[in-house]
């Protein structure tokens, strides 16, 4: 017993006063990308370098100007390395969640808008119970959701918890590209969740299928199967990014 108490003192108090204090992230962390408008000419180097197919031609802009789809992006930084004009920067901004799919598109020269909060989520302001379903996820997104329960993040203090049964849940949090073999279980879980219910897609796979978008064994993300209310991008998203997304559901 004394041993445990002594060790307890050693281990100290670790919970961060989020969101009032900003978490310290690695200087090498790749946060929200920023694209500066440059004259691309005939260069398409970033398109060729991107392993995730996350760069799309920008509608209405000069030909070749890329739009970065955070819903597909793995935040690998290959585009930044490939671009001869330095158009890509990755900021240290971890807040990237979006209520809409379009909100994940990063276009050169356009500053992201603050999104209106959907009215119908007000009911979850004080308590939000989540049922997590891994539908072909690689266990990285799952791990970063799990970690929210630890001392540093202490999800419970915000009134948010992961629960064991969909019957107790207000939201289902999906990870993974929705493998063919998990589709049925995902649907069943959704049907078992009482309404009103929220669907949260966490990670590039769950948003768009990610790297597995073209695999015949996968369905290309959650929206193939369920209506998605919130998108949290990353591969995997940093736990703070997930926490920020969950908190924005409650404000």
């Amino acid at each position: 017993m004394l041993r445990i108490i002594k060790e307890r003192l050693q281990q100290k108090y670790r919970t961060l006063d989020y969101p009032r204090k900003k978490p310290a992230l690695s200087p090498r962390y790749h946060g929200r990308p920023i694209l500066t408008p440059v004259n691309c000419g005939a260069c398409r180097a970033c398109y060729a370098a991107c392993p995730a197919g996350a760069l799309l031609p920008t509608l209405g802009a000069e030909e070749g100007t890329p739009t970065l789809d955070m819903g597909r992006c793995t935040f690998c930084g290959a585009c930044r390395a490939a671009c001869p004009k330095g158009a890509f920067t990755f900021s240290d901004e971890h807040r990237m969640a979006s209520f809409t799919r379009e909100g994940l598109l990063v276009t050169p020269g356009v500053t992201p808008q603050v999104q209106p909060h959907p009215e119908n989520f007000r009911i979850f302001r004080r308590s939000l119970k989540l049922r997590q379903v891994s539908a072909g996820g690689c266990n990285a997104c799952e791990a970063d959701c799990n970690v929210l329960g630890t001392l540093v993040y202490d999800l419970g203090r915000f009134g948010i918890d992961f629960v064991a049964s969909p019957r107790h849940a207000d939201a289902i949090l999906v990870t993974g590209p929705v493998s063919a073999n998990m589709r049925l279980a995902l649907l069943d879980t959704w049907h078992a969740t009482p309404e009103p219910r929220i669907v949260i897609a966490v990670g590039a796979c769950a948003i768009s299928g990610g790297l597995f978008r073209e695999s015949p064994q996968c369905h290309g993300g959650t929206s193939s199967t369920l209506p998605v209310d919130m998108y949290i991008p990353g591969c995997p998203p940093n736990p703070w990014t997930i926490l920020d997304g969950l908190l924005s559901l409650k404000t």
């Binding site: 597995f212 015949p216 064994q217």
Partner: peptide
Amino acid sequence: YQHRGIEAM
């Protein structure tokens, strides 16, 4: 359940 067809890719 998690089969994503990696070897085929």
